[in-house]
Design a binder for these strands. Structure first.
Lengths: 194, 194
DNA sequence: GTCTATAGCCGGATAGAC
DNA sequence: GTCTATCCGGCTATAGAC
């Protein structure tokens, strides 16, 4: 066993290739070449392509949880935590303009394939949904907390799709500014309305 | 030649299959089976798979243009025309919850495949973008017309992705109500601000 | 754990009879 | 214009040597 196990390396490379090329269009040969092992060796670690997808989704769930925990632990106010989420669109803008959102595009693809793993992929978005709902609740916005969380998911997914279609960075920055405005207007409104 | 030419039937079936299963995952055999012809006969009408995709995109451009012209010709006020666009999300909710938006998911897939046709697919969204921009201009909103049009595209694409992920019809109706509220708030604001 | 070799299938694409 | 038959290549997956 090396410092980073071959299995972990396979999952890491498969994750990137599924994001950049799509799950269906990525072959075992592509992943094996990226890892630098033979196709035969591949099957020592994963029996089927679906097993790799499963591991990739688990990895993404894991990393998403860690990211959310980090944002939580940094001890900032809920508003700043929500801004961390929003600014993912800026931080990842180059890849988003090329390939869209890794989670949104995977969910869309698996829905069309009617793939058994589509619900596990949806759980990744569910992690953001729950976490964002918690942030709004922490701000005293209770009744509408989940609706606001869903709206933030809608907005960011929409920006990702349009950004990948038109490849316009100024557009991303304009929409992100709009999201931040929307958030601040929410926070000055009487909490009883929310 | 029959009432509906075989070529047209191929494009129609391919359009539906690309939407419901994705471009990459749809094979010639799938389309031939849907049309009811042999694979060999297929090549009499289309030399390559990319040629079919090209025809499907042309068909979608054509039908989108016709739909926008119809909305325009109905003589309603620009606000009502914009509402026609927004309510596509309600009218097509069943298919959207299963397969997402036909245009958005195609653009996302072609971006990942780095396919030569990705710009032609983006033009379909461009038709909506231009038409919506025109509606805002007709309402006296000049400076921000295009930004508002883009924002409507963002919102509807975001709803489509999240609807396909969580399969929640109440969510779609809630977001559509939110879009309509946003629109009406825009229209009561002083035009000079926009 | 890693390799080579290969099976078996399905994809896009072609040739040629009718 | 439609068919059957077929080619070739890439795909997932397996077997077995090292």
């Amino acid at each position: 066993m090396t410092a980073v196990g071959t299995r972990d390396l396979i999952v890491e490379k498969a994750d990137a290739l599924f994001y950049e090329g799509g799950f269906e269009a990525t072959s075992f040969a592509d992943i094996a070449a990226a890892v630098g092992i033979s196709r035969g060796n591949f099957y020592h670690h994963f029996k089927t392509k679906d097993a790799i997808l499963d591991a990739v989704i688990s990895r993404r769930q894991q990393r998403t949880s860690e990211m959310l925990d980090n944002w939580q632990a940094k001890g900032a106010a809920p508003r700043d935590r929500i801004l961390s989420f929003i600014r993912l669109l800026i931080a990842n803008r180059i890849k988003i303009m090329a390939f869209g959102c890794p989670v949104g595009t995977l969910c869309s693809e698996l829905a069309k394939l009617d793939h058994a793993a589509q619900h596990r992929a949806a759980e990744i978005l569910g992690l953001f949904r729950s976490w964002l709902t918690g942030q709004f609740q922490a701000l005293g916005i209770i009744r509408q907390a989940e609706a606001h969380a869903m709206h933030l998911l809608v907005w960011s997914q929409g920006v990702a799709v349009i950004a990948a279609t038109f490849r316009d960075e100024a557009f991303i920055r304009r929409e992100v500014a709009g999201i931040e405005e929307w958030l601040d207007e929410l926070l000055v409104a009487p909490a009883v309305e929310n």
